[in-house]
Design a protein around this nucleic acid. Structure first.
Lengths: 348, 348
DNA sequence: GTTAGCACTCTCATTAAATGAGTGCTAACG
DNA sequence: CGTTAGCACTCATTTAATGAGAGTGCTAAC
């Protein structure tokens, strides 16, 4: 963090350099800047200022006779200024229009909803869309169903309030009739319908303690059967769409950088961890380059926002692109997407 | 198709060139070949033979002073010879060992099974694994379930004999109690359990004609509700894994070729069509380069095999890699994978 | 403090020459 | 007549040299 705040003119130049570089991907020189932004000061002065900015660490030089490009610190300054000024510049960006067209109002099951929104994030931004699913702890138990496929092999289907159906195939030695299975399911459903998943385990234990009668044996089995599915659904899931968009970014024309990116996405748990960390900071979060800890993501930036379900923060969505990214637009997009998703979830 | 069959020595040279090129990816010259395969004839003679092979269209020259590389016709010859000689060379390839280690015998639902096998195909071959799901027509109706999530919003879950559960969220104006829904489902289940999907539609029509009584209205609704899911499940699905492996292939170091490949995979229907065509030809099928009609796949080869469910061909699996591919190994792998999958499906 | 001028630096594209792998051809050999 | 050695030739690739262009940094003047 620099001790001296930049004077207004320096800020102007810095922002100009960055926004110019964002659009062209070429190092920007003093003359270019002067012409493009019709600066009142001459290129020579601009050069002096840029030299100062470089000394302070906001800009860098690929080589002596090239223009300047922003450092991560430069981007950070730019983005911070952007988010501060955000409220006033709240004009309706074209990306937002596009996104609002996406949601036609028809209801989808949650899986399709997330996937489709994730696609949309990617398509509009031309980068990579990511969404983490809600922490399933906040999810409401709706229904469980056991189906006997063949001897000793059962399909367990678990449905949550918002229409997520999880299925799992299990094998047990015990042989149940479909009738018994239905009875087991009914017992669970009657008692657990409408409970948040956090409560379900507790409730199950209560149930088992209460009922000392004939049902008890069946109930135990039912619990055992459903265990796998319930555990499974507790895991949070990551949606990623549009990796291939990175192929179009000039900064990844180098095949090795390309590989690094794709490799980074193979290890999804890193990404999940990063996104989950954002859950605590409500609103928009931005990670520039090496601020994403994963080394392979050092050429990428991540813009995230948290979304809510019935006014409680449950998940994160965002866009991943190159560090050189039109932050302003992406921020609008991500912010709006989060708002939209929150509305959709809360309506359901 | 060449009128004159190649004499033995020419075949030897041709196969040597191809197998050498497959391992090194470099054009192979006469001297190299002579040394590597300890040929009894001199490099000069090899040159003469290669010139002949070139004239016949089996080999080609990137430029005058480079070695030879196979043409598609060359590969075709090589592969045909390979498959003919296959039976005798049926030694246990290391890939097969790896694959047999994969299947631990535990049962999975079909979706996980396909996905996991597809991953395995990709991981072992280091190329791209593909599987088309069975034509769902051959699939057995097991169970349908309607769940009311909230007013006018229902989740339809459809389960097939082999444990595929399809779900769909639908909205209708009609308001049903859960009891009514169960009744509807029971009606369908009682009548359709065990029927192949091809029969289901017919059967439904019969049912509706038969029952003129009170159930009829409910049944009609049930059919309407289930329509979406039944249509959905009729679509065959494509599993693709390991696209990123292509990043390691030297022939795709060029970023544009890379893009072409990835684009090709965005249009999955082409691939599905191609794979479905193989359903008619039982056993292993190989498409070399432009033999895959899609122009973007012209630098790739596809090795497929059909697999069976209870002795009836139901789907195709395969591996996609560069044209320069160790066909022998890949063929073994694909062949064995198909056999294995057939066994697994038939056991269930 | 700002600006104009100018020498200087470094990249990138182009050209030229050197290198070398591998062929094609020819003539000799068994 | 098939096979081989020898040799000139071709063409991609590498290395070096050159020049243009962009942009800076410095200095001196305003």
């Amino acid at each position: 963090m620099p001790d001296i705040t930049l004077d207004e003119r320096s800020q102007l130049i810095l922002n100009a350099v960055i926004s110019c570089y964002i659009t062209t991907a070429d190092p920007v020189g003093s003359r270019t800047l002067w012409k493009k932004y019709k600066l009142t000061v001459s290129p020579a002065t601009v050069r002096n200022i840029m030299a100062d900015l470089e000394e302070m660490g906001y800009l860098q030089h690929p080589h002596t006779s090239a223009g300047r490009i922003p450092t991560e610190m430069g981007y950070r300054f730019y983005v911070d200024a952007l988010t501060k000024a955000k409220s006033k510049a709240d004009k309706i960006a074209p990306q937002i229009k596009e996104l609002s067209r996406w949601y036609s109002g028809g209801s989808k099951n949650a899986d399709d909803l997330f996937k489709s929104l994730c696609r949309e994030l990617s398509a509009i931004s031309q980068y990579i869309g990511v969404i983490t699913t809600p922490k399933w702890q906040n999810i409401i138990y709706k229904h469980i169903k056991f189906i006997c496929l063949r001897e000793n092999q059962y399909l367990v289907i678990f449905v949550t309030q918002n229409g997520i159906a999880q299925q799992r195939l299990i094998e047990v030695k015990e042989a149940y009739t479909q009738e018994q299975l239905d009875q087991m399911a009914r017992c669970l459903n009657d008692n657990l319908n409408g409970q948040p998943l956090t409560q379900v385990r507790k409730k199950i234990l209560e149930l088992m303690a209460q009922e000392k009668d004939a049902y008890n044996r069946l109930l135990q089995d039912a619990v055992e059967l459903s265990q796998g599915v319930l555990n499974n659904i507790a895991e949070s899931k990551l949606y990623v769409e549009g990796e291939l968009n990175m192929l179009n970014q000039p900064e990844f024309a180098d095949i090795d950088k390309m590989k690094a990116i794709f490799r980074a996405f193979e290890e999804k748990h890193h990404l999940i961890k990063l996104l989950d960390k954002c859950l605590n900071d409500d609103g928009v979060n931005i990670f520039i380059g090496s601020e994403n800890e994963a080394d392979r993501m050092r050429d990428c930036s991540l813009v995230t926002a948290t979304y809510r379900d019935h006014n409680q923060v449950v998940g994160t969505l965002g866009v991943i692109g190159p560090v050189r990214m039109p932050y302003s637009q992406v921020i609008s997009l991500v912010e709006y997407a989060a708002k939209l998703l929150s509305e959709i979830l809360s309506k359901q």
